[in-house]
């Protein structure tokens, strides 16, 4: 039964996943073109100075992309389920509600993670074309929190969409927005470096929260 849920979600999300991946690859392509232009317009050592010492982040277009991707996948996955409370039918399958939700979230989160991993690889590859390994490391340390923001955006959107009551929906929205915002603070490139493990733990700790609205949905009183 669990495998059937995974298969159902995979079939449902495949087209959206490809669309999400295409959007992310387009942005990666744009960043690469912009990066090439930087080196075409100026001496390489001047571009290095701007990136290394002035903190110019040529990969800025990536900043909100994971959040958009996470939101897109969550909406694609859960909005149809909420129409006419279709999700309730899934929750009546002969499987514990948390396993049903877990199946959905595994597929959705997996889809987001795959796209974000492609972003990370693309960013690492294009940075290492033009900059030394130290810059690649700082670039990835700067972009990783943005990618984690994509995961909290997905989980937060799922929390909000699955929640049946308006009062908790607003609360979930506020917590999700706030949590996602924690990963998007403006600082020097690499400023998040020392708290990246903590941020990972925070995302992991937040993940099971999606089960709560599912339980409320399954056994709702309001």
């Amino acid at each position: 039964m669990f495998r059937s849920i995974l298969l159902k979600e995979y079939t449902k999300l495949k087209a959206f996943w490809l669309a999400g991946l295409a959007l992310n690859l387009c942005v990666a392509g744009y960043v690469l073109v912009a990066l090439r232009k930087l080196f075409a317009l100026d001496h390489a050592e001047v571009v290095w100075y701007r990136v290394i010492h002035l903190g110019q982040t040529f990969y800025d277009p990536f900043m909100y992309l994971p959040v958009i991707t996470g939101l897109f996948m969550a909406v694609a996955q859960f909005l149809p389920e909420m129409k006419n409370h279709r999700f309730r039918i899934s929750l009546h399958l002969p499987l514990a509600p948390h396993l049903i939700v877990l199946g959905h979230v595994l597929v959705g989160l997996g889809a987001v993670v795959l796209i974000l991993a492609a972003d990370l690889l693309a960013l690492a590859a294009m940075t290492s074309l033009y900059f030394p390994a130290e810059v690649v490391a700082v670039t990835l340390a700067t972009a990783l929190p943005w990618l984690l923001a994509g995961l909290t955006a997905y989980l937060g959107a799922a929390l909000v969409l699955l929640e049946p009551g308006w009062r908790l929906r607003v609360f979930n929205l506020a917590v999700s927005l706030g949590l996602t915002g924690l990963f998007l603070h403006q600082g020097a490139p690499g400023a998040y470096q020392r708290i990246l493990p903590l941020l990972f733990i925070l995302v992991l700790a937040f993940t099971p929260s999606v089960l709560l609205p599912a339980y409320r949905f399954r056994y709702r009183k309001d």
């Binding site: 948390h98 929390l159 917590v175 937040f206 099971p208 929260s209 089960l211 339980y215």
Partner: peptide
């Protein structure tokens, strides 16, 4: 678990 997973980030 699900409830505290929301309370802690909150």
């Amino acid at each position: 678990l699900a409830r505290y997973a929301l309370i802690l980030p909150a």
